[in-house]
Simulated scan of single mutants.
Amino acid sequence: MNVERIKEAYGALYEIETSLKDIIEDKMSTEHGPLWRRKLREEGKKHFHDVVSFYHKYQCLNDLFTSEELHQMHQLIAIRNKVCHMRDLSNDEFRVLLYYKEIFCTAKCNSNY
């Protein structure tokens, strides 16, 4: 097991998830006001797959990414599970994770979001 690579993968996942959550926070607050979080708590939505589902569920979010990018979010769930359960990633999975990090973390900085 390559501990340094697992650390880097976990850091990348953290950045991806927090970026996606920040975008949700901004768009949902703008669209629905500050009380939108009540619905989030009621539904118990706090896992990565829940974050991904928000981009399909709410109109103000599902136009932010292309259908390919939304598909990529779903692909990250399997990679995320491997990292969080301390299983090695293949070289391809690791490259994919770093590639997606660039896409989703850059989106957070993009003025369109």
Rank of each mutant, 00 (worst) to 15 (best):
E4S: 12
H47A: 12
K21N: 11
E69H: 01
D92Q: 11
I24P: 04
T106I: 00
R38C: 08
Q75V: 01
K21M: 13
E68L: 08
L70G: 06
H71Y: 10
S53L: 05
H32I: 06
E102M: 06
I6F: 07
Q75D: 07
H32Q: 13
Y100P: 04
K7A: 15
K27E: 11
H49R: 09
K57Q: 13
F94W: 06
L20M: 07
H47L: 14
K101Q: 12
L13V: 04
A12P: 04
N81V: 08
N110L: 07
H47M: 12
E25D: 15
E42D: 13
L70D: 02
N81F: 04
Y10H: 11
C84R: 05
F54E: 08
L35T: 12
E42Y: 09
V51N: 05
L64R: 01
T30M: 11
F104G: 04
M86A: 15
E25V: 10
K45D: 12
G33Y: 10
I24S: 06
A12S: 12
N91I: 10
V96E: 06
F65L: 08
H47W: 10
I79V: 05
V83G: 03
C84Y: 04
M86F: 14
D88E: 14
F54C: 11
M86Y: 13
A78T: 05
C105I: 04
L13F: 03
Y100W: 10
R38G: 09
E31I: 03
